[in-house]
Every structure is written in C-alpha cells, then in structure tokens.
C-alpha cells in the first residue's frame, strides 16, 4: 500500500483545500441583491466537486510516482531559490545583471561548464535585452543601483 501513499496524501491535502475554499465562500456577503445566485454559489459548487473527487482519490489511489533522489531534490531547491532571488534582484540590479547571474547559476545547476556558462549567460542576457527592450518595446528594469548614472 505504501507506494499508493502519494495519491492518498494528495487526496487529503486537496480535501482540506476544498473545505477551506468552500468555508471561505460563506463570508462573501453582498448587501444588495444583484443576481439571485450571488458570489457564493459557484465557489460552493466547485468546493463540493473537488471534495468528492479527492475523497475518491483517497479511497482509490493510483500507484505512486518514483520521486527523485535527494541529490535531485537539492538541485530543485537550488533552482527555486534562484528564481525567488531573481524576483527580488531584478528591479534593484536591472535586467542585464540580474539575468546574467540567474542564467549562470541555472546553467551551473544544469551542470554546464563554468566558464562557458558565464559567457553564454552574459551574451544571452544582452541579446534578450536588445530584442525585448528595444525591438519589442517591453519595459525591462534598467537597475536601481545604476541610478547614479542617470538612466
């Protein structure tokens, strides 16, 4: 039974989520009646729907997947940390610097050769900046730390 544990855990978590979702909907009160259903009904239906499906999952789980070994988990955690760091660094450091650092770290996590990873990261960031900021007119941050340069 133990290899069916993944689905059972998922089912329990989803059941808790559906209950929370349905209970939260009770607080969606409106003072006036805009339509006979109001903002509660649709969420209630969804909560019941997900709750029943997750009950089914708890009682009839599939074979679980093979979860990756610890070394892979470590790399997954590193990737996620780098994503979060990027979200916080992007505006202060600016697109080019933040993206070069992020790409270089990701390449290393994907076991790229160090020097070529760094070179590729810098080149790709510059090309992307040129393409998206100048060619496609997306506003990408230039970097708060460079504000003394007047950009």
């Amino acid at each position: 039974m133990s290899q069916r544990l993944s689905d059972r855990i998922a089912g329990v978590l989803l059941l808790i989520f559906a209950s929370w979702y349905g209970l939260t909907a009770r607080s969606f009160n409106v003072n006036f009646i805009a339509d006979p259903v109001g903002p509660k009904a649709f969420p209630f239906i969804l909560a019941v729907f997900m709750g029943l499906s997750s009950l089914y999952l708890i009682f009839k789980p599939d074979e679980g997947p093979t979860w990756p070994p610890f070394s892979v988990w470590l790399r997954i955690i590193l990737v996620v940390i780098s994503f979060v760091a990027y979200a916080y660094m992007l505006v202060p450091l600016g697109f080019i610097l933040a993206t070069t650092l992020e790409l270089a770290s990701l390449s290393l996590i994907f076991r790229g050769p160090p020097l070529r990873s760094l070179m590729a990261a810098l080149l790709f960031s510059l090309v992307m900046y040129a393409l998206f900021a100048f060619g496609l007119e997306l506003g990408l941050p230039t970097g708060r730390i460079f504000s003394f340069l007047g950009v």
């Binding site: 993206t99 992020e102 790409l103 390449s107 994907f110 076991r111 790229g112 050769p113 990873s117």
Partner: peptide, 11 residues
C-alpha cells in the same frame, strides 16, 4: 545542450 536551453527557456 540542455544546460543552455533550459536556462534560456527560464529567462
């Protein structure tokens, strides 16, 4: 190589 392709997709 994947070490370039996937970070590029992410960027």
């Amino acid at each position: 190589p994947r070490w370039f392709l996937l970070p590029a997709v992410a960027a």
